[in-house]
Amino acid sequence: MRRFLVWSALALVIGLGLAGGGYWAYWNFYARFQPVVIQRDQAEIQRLLDEASWISPGGGGEPLYVVAWRDNAAAQRYEREEFPKLRAAGVEPRIIVFARPDREGMAQSTAAERATVAEIWLSRDWTLYERWTATAPRNWTAAGIPSADGNLARGAVVAAGREFVDRLSDLLRGQGVGAGYPLILWRDREGYLKACACSDPRSWAFIRDDLDAPDMTSPPEAPVEDDFGSEPLPYPEVGDLPDIPPSDGADDGEPPMNSPVDPAPEGNRAEPSRPSRPAAPREAPRAETQEDATFF
């Protein structure tokens, strides 16, 4: 009986360990990357997204909102790798960029960044955003863009962007969306609003699945160039061939001068020369003896 209890307790411990390990693996490798379905405050969240000065490459289609600051590495990678897939599925990416506020007395944004953010919120110029993101941050000087520091109107625009991010983060955090950027929001096939703090690329597959986007895009095939044109060349008709003039002597029934045929009459044709056999070797001279000498 005691042995049965010991083995039962051991089996129970092993079973609990396996169940706990399986649940941890499910949560660590799958569940924690799943997006969150927004259950509350959907109308307010949608209103915030609609009122923000988002920018887009265009194309129309179902919108997908990406909220991040300029130097966020995960947001830059998401834009570079996932935007072509989303646009191939008819989705319109919309970017909402903001300048981070100071933290513990340390500035987290530069004057050029704040000026550019204010200009983008006011003009919603996608070309400006492309030039900005294509330039290294240390080389971007915001030349020709009015400064947001010391400008009441543009400074208010920068502050409005920060307030938008704070309010949106509060609404999402209360429903289980973790901290991290980029914040991505979209609607699935059934129309439910979903959100994700998608700093890990393993969460991007769920977005593609909801929006029917391909896992990878194939490069366009290069057109095959035809060296002979798009249409085959016409064959010439037999009647269109030019008349070939006869060679010398053709009218008399004689072969041309360079013909290998012997022009001699049939009965007088010479036999073809055959190679002669080599002569037999000459016999060596015999020695003859005379009275006073020997000759060869």
Rank of each mutant, 00 (worst) to 15 (best):
G239N: 12
E288T: 02
P256S: 15
N268M: 15
E291K: 09
P275I: 11
G229L: 02
P263G: 08
A270T: 00
E271L: 11
D252A: 15
A280K: 14
A264L: 10
P255M: 11
R274F: 07
S230P: 03
S259N: 04
A250I: 03
N268C: 02
D252I: 02
P255I: 00
G229H: 09
A279D: 13
E291D: 14
M257P: 06
A250R: 09
V238Y: 05
A264N: 07
N258E: 13
Y235L: 15
P263Y: 08
A280W: 01
D252G: 03
D251R: 11
S273Q: 11
A280H: 03
P260M: 10
S259L: 07
M257K: 09
D292C: 00
L241F: 01
D243L: 12
P272H: 03
P285S: 02
P245Y: 05
E288C: 02
D251I: 07
A250S: 12
P232N: 02
T289H: 00
P281C: 04
R282Q: 11
R277Y: 00
E254M: 11
D251A: 15
Q290P: 00
P242M: 04
D227F: 13
G253V: 09
D248L: 15
E231H: 11
A264G: 01
E288L: 04
P246V: 05
L233A: 14
G253N: 06
R274G: 01
E266S: 05
M257T: 04
E254G: 01
P278S: 11
P265Q: 05
V261H: 09
D248C: 01
